[in-house]
Design a protein around this nucleic acid. Structure first.
Length: 420
DNA sequence: TCTGGGGTCCTAGGACCC
DNA sequence: TCTGGGGTCCTAGGACCC
């Protein structure tokens, strides 16, 4: 058996932990730059606020109904996510962290009353972290995902659902929309409609050859998993990233070069941090900048530049300088940039790297010492404590009007309690 | 006025090898 | 008239996930 533990309305639930008066009230959380709605409490869903809708489109409704609005606070969500993972780690020999709000648990070879187990895990998580959790247990990861979705739909299940008897699986799949199945995306929906496939059950009944031909290998895996045959790997070891991207939309469009340079080099600095945190080197860097695609009356551009380094590197100075050079050459006067970013690719592990025969050893050692010193200062005093001049204040020019405090990660933001 | 960010895997097709 | 056979590697684009 596998379990899927999914935090309900995760970002909204995190905000409620420190604002308990919002329990039972509609709450939404916005994407970076306060752009779109990315999390909704059940009450907000009931008001008809859709996932991913631009905030300005629901603003009148939000104001009329007194919906609590939050800008995204990833320091808080990341910390709460670790707390949930800590609870889960006591309930299974192996945990796969699938996303910030979802973990798979490997229960293979174990025996228990899985229905009671799932409910107990949900209760325990709620008690220790204040985050509501839906736990589905089933013979495959895909079915466990479906079981956990049932928990959200049926409060009677008390946060835990064990789905394993063939007759139960059939009953559930017959009522489960095919587009809600893990691995079936939007682009497949028209194809499925043509084939008169509307439910997960109908998909699972398609002939194997049809599935392989039309939905290829990933669709075939989903098909097998729905039929109770596990074939999606359990991965409790996180591989280093093969690409690292740092990009943001800006609160205001950027027209001038110095401001664009500040932003792009700040992205580069943060990308290098991620790179160094996973002990990797990057072989190439891409820098891109784009205008506001929603403004039809403005000149549009999506420019990018790619640089391949003579030798893979994770040196701050090399990478920040390269980002600045590329931003300079791709930026064109007269364009108003709304978004930019830096992507590192061609990633390899430091431990696997074969240095070039002709590298300047003493210069490389000096650069290495500088980068390690920067890491140490960042760790002790924060990422904005030491910056290259070109990075400005190192902050991203984002709109975040509704941001909550860093309750769990900043001493100054720890909530105060007073006893009367 | 206003529209997110960060990833992975698979496949087809081209370039290249002997 | 007519043009082999068997591979590998790389890349771009598509589809998917949260």
């Amino acid at each position: 058996m596998f379990a899927l533990a999914d935090c309900n309305n995760f970002f909204a639930s995190c905000e409620r932990v420190f604002r308990p008066e919002l329990n039972g009230k509609p709450v939404i959380v916005l994407s970076n730059n306060d752009g779109c709605v990315v999390a909704r409490s059940n009450e907000a869903k009931a008001l008809g606020i859709q996932m991913g809708v631009p905030f300005f489109k629901v603003r009148p409704l939000v104001e009329r109904c007194g919906v609590a609005v939050f800008s995204s606070n990833f320091a808080l969500y990341g910390d709460m996510s670790h707390r949930v993972q800590e609870v889960l780690s006591h309930y299974a020999p192996a945990v796969e962290v699938y996303s910030i709000d979802e973990c798979f648990l490997d229960l293979r070879g174990l025996e228990a009353d899985w229905d009671a187990y799932a409910k107990a895990l949900s209760r325990r998580c709620r008690r220790l972290t204040a985050i509501p959790l839906s736990v589905g247990v089933a013979p495959t990861k895909t079915l466990a995902k479906i079981a956990s979705k049932l928990c959200k739909h049926y409060p009677k299940l008390q946060g835990g659902c064990y789905l394993h008897r063939p007759q139960d699986i059939e009953k559930v799949l017959r009522a489960f929309p095919v587009e809600d199945v893990w691995g079936i995306g939007r682009r497949s929906v028209p194809k499925l409609a043509d084939m008169h496939v509307r439910t997960a059950w109908e998909y699972a009944q398609l002939p194997e050859t049809t599935v392989r031909k039309i939905f290829a290998l990933p669709g075939f895996h989903t098909w097998k998993e729905l039929r109770g045959i596990p074939c999606i790997e359990f991965e409790d070891w996180a591989e280093p990233k093969q690409s690292i991207c740092m990009s943001r939309s800006f609160a205001h469009e950027i027209r001038e070069l110095p401001e664009l340079l500040e932003q792009v080099t700040s992205f580069a600095g943060r990308a290098v941090e991620k790179l160094r945190n996973q002990a990797s080197l990057a072989g190439e860097m891409m820098v891109f900048a784009l205008t506001n695609r929603f403004k039809d009356d403005q000149a549009q551009s999506f420019d990018s530049q790619l640089l391949t380094f003579p030798e893979a590197t994770n040196d701050y100075r090399t990478l920040v300088t390269a980002a600045a050079r590329m931003a300079r050459s791709l930026r064109r006067p007269g364009y108003a940039y709304k978004k930019a970013g830096v992507v590192l690719r061609g990633i390899e592990q430091v431990a696997d790297h074969v240095p070039s025969l002709f590298r300047d050893v003493s210069a490389a050692e000096k650069d290495g010492r500088l980068s390690r010193t920067i890491d140490q200062i960042h760790q002790s005093f924060g990422g904005e404590s030491l910056l290259f001049g070109i990075q400005g204040d190192g902050r991203f020019h984002m709109a975040q009007e509704h941001k909550s405090p860093h309750y769990t990660t900043l001493w100054a933001d720890i909530p105060h309690a007073s006893v009367k």
